[in-house]
Amino acid sequence: MEPRSRSFYLLAIFFALFLLFLYGPTITIGILSFQGPGGGLTFPMRGTSLHWFRDLFEQQAVGDIWGSFGRSFLLGLMVMVTTVVVSVMGGLAFRKRFPGSTVLFYLIITSLVIPSILISLGVGLMFSQTGLDVHWSTSGFGSQLTWTLPFGLLIMFAVFNRFDKSYEEAARDLGASPWQTLRHVVLPIIAPSLIGVALFGFTLSYDEFARTLLTAGSYNTLPLEIFGMTTNVTTPVLYALGTLTTAFSLIMIGFFLCIAWWSARRKARTGSDAGKGLV
């Protein structure tokens, strides 16, 4: 191996600074959320305590954050499942190059680049003009899908662009029906990338703000609740909440990454069933 050049070290320092820039602020509020009861929004720390975390459990201090957390979590799961199913179906559909697929493709791109506030405004207007009530599980759910589906589909396009068609041909030659080919050949091969789609679906929904602003109705999701707090809460309880929800996000990300890693290993170990014989 040739020795590291000087530019490597310069770039490595740049990269380290970039990571510090990315994570530094979050780590800072993580530390500050352990402020003592008399502490403020900035350093210095006035003692350390769990005071602000305890405050999170008192309704009058922060409002209904646990209710909104529950709604955000449930909505995240709903969006995740829908995103995975619809993206896989959409990805499979696009392989067939059906008439009108170009229009649909540009709609997906539009969905990705449209300013979020337009979705919020448009869906909000649609519901109010037709006399329907906006609710996080209907209008909020649909609005969030316009943000998660493009990501899911882009991942599926990337996956199917690299998909080796000869596996399907082999299955077909061995007499598998289209459904059997899909179920026993295609889906197992693309399964690891579906974990990625699920990760995007859940986290983007869980953190979405702009698209749910006018479409969540009278029950807030967690990001809306947090944003409401920024205007009237000036104590480290805000940081405590930020630390908790970031920790929750990290746990979910870790969970998804572990499944991805585990399924990749499983695939490597049991990818071939040569010699086992299928009955």
Binding site: L22, L32, T203, D207, I226, T230, G242, T246, I253
Partner: peptide, 17 residues
Amino acid sequence: IPFWTSNIIRMISWIPF
């Protein structure tokens, strides 16, 4: 990883800086 966490929290986290 930061992309999958909350944007609002990441904005708030600049206050102490």
